[in-house]
């Protein structure tokens, strides 16, 4: 057996180990912003939206 311990440096690419792809950062922050919007828009205490009202509206249509 020669595989009893790992050299941890072999797991990390030297030049890129601290990089964060820009597209991924946009996704990350974008989803946080979207989450704030969505929570406000669909919380009865903030926007007044309720699933009961939404249901009534869909029935009246």
């Amino acid at each position: 057996m020669t595989d009893n311990g790992d050299n941890i440096e072999a797991f990390e690419a030297k030049e890129t180990s601290r990089k964060l792809p820009v597209g991924w950062l946009v996704l990350f922050w974008g989803l946080i912003l979207w989450g704030i919007y969505y929570f406000a828009a669909y919380s009865p205490a903030i926007s007044g939206w309720t699933q009961e009202k939404a249901y009534q509206e869909s029935v009246n249509k």
Binding site: F11, E12, A13, S17, R18, K19, L20, P21
Partner: peptide, 14 residues
């Protein structure tokens, strides 16, 4: 993945 390919992970920070 790194063990079987021999390629280190692209970004440790990510």
């Amino acid at each position: 993945l790194p063990k079987s390919t021999g390629i280190p992970i692209y970004s440790h920070r990510l």
